[in-house]
Nucleic acid binder design. Structure first.
Length: 295
DNA sequence: CGAGAGTCCTGAAGGC
DNA sequence: TGCCTTCAGGACTCTC
């Protein structure tokens, strides 16, 4: 599945890819980074400096979380779910990083920077800090023993899980006229395929993004499902591609800029065929593709 | 039901 | 140099 054959890359025709949002690989990287800092820790206090995110942070969040022990950190799509408490005291902290959010562990006492909206103070003199300049993220409270919430109700399968396949895409797409790129970005079809990885995956599968979803064959959907898996897996393995406001869970602002095959490369040479990458708009969103490699 | 548009927000980038 | 405008994007919400 042809995603990145690093050895074949042409050379550096690009300066700095400007990627920014946390997509599924970034969220998974955040989860993995948070786990060792968080599991088994007791939350002592929650400081909310700015509650106006995508939805307001519930006013009772501090009361609900205080004294609870974090048992696990789960992920569903791009939502992080902190499993806190047990039995009748069960509950989950639901977090979404939006397009500019990050969550990282630092020592207690460090002064907050601009846009550091929430601190969760732990019992080991550390804290988890939520930073989100654009405030498209979310922090919500789910009471109960299971993470049940309207935001999670209608989500499609995990792209790296067993239920996701070309067959699934094929079945769900019959009769649908919207473009395949918009189709795979719909979280009810499959979660976690954001704008960057949608373009990258379609390139990997050699599928032109404007084709109607309902007119693509089973075989091509097999290739596309494989490309989505490969693209996301590679990004997770690389630690999550990143961008300027992305900060890893350990507080390092580092990103290793992952190089893209088509995203943000309009007018540049295709890394595979030497054609020219094109940019178009689909559903008020930018799409990049190679007209020669993708048909 | 599906499709398309609107919405929130800030910072970067471009124009003059 | 600095102000003003435009744009980007996740994903819910609304309209047709």
């Amino acid at each position: 599945m042809a995603t990145t054959a690093l050895s074949n890359l042409k050379q550096t025709d690009d300066t700095k890819p400007r990627l920014h949002m946390p997509e599924l690989p970034e969220v998974e990287t955040t989860r993995i980074g948070l786990l060792p800092k968080l599991v088994g820790r007791r939350i002592q206090r929650v400081v909310v400096r700015e509650a106006r995110l995508r939805w307001p942070i519930p006013a009772n969040i501090s009361v609900e979380l205080k004294g609870r022990v974090v048992r696990d950190v789960l992920r569903r799509g791009k939502y992080l779910l902190w499993d806190v408490g047990t039995g009748t005291q069960g509950g989950f902290l639901l977090c979404h990083l939006g397009m500019s959010g990050s969550m990282f562990a630092i020592p207690a006492g460090r002064a907050p920077d601009k846009h550091d909206h929430v601190d969760l103070l732990l019992d080991d003199k550390s804290l988890i800090r939520y930073h989100d300049p654009r405030r498209f993220g979310a922090i919500l409270w789910i009471p109960g023993k299971t993470p049940t919430h309207a935001l999670l109700d209608n989500l499609g399968p995990e792209p790296l899980g067993q239920e996701f396949s070309g067959e699934h895409l094929f079945q769900r797409s019959r009769g649908r006229s919207l473009s395949v790129k918009e189709f795979i970005m719909n979280a009810q079809i499959v979660v976690g395929v954001g704008n960057i990885y949608a373009s990258e995956s379609l390139f990997g599968a050699g599928v032109k993004p404007t084709i109607a979803a309902g007119r693509i064959s089973k075989g091509r959907y097999d290739a596309l499902a494989g490309a989505i898996r490969a693209t996301l897996s590679n990004a997770i393995a690389a630690g999550g591609s990143s961008l300027r406001d992305y900060v890893q869970a350990d507080g390092q602002p580092g990103y290793f800029q992952q190089r893209t095959m088509v995203y943000d490369r309009a007018g540049k040479r295709c890394r595979r065929c030497d054609g020219t990458i094109r940019a178009i708009r689909q559903g008020q969103r930018s799409t990049f593709f190679c007209p020669r490699c993708q048909t």
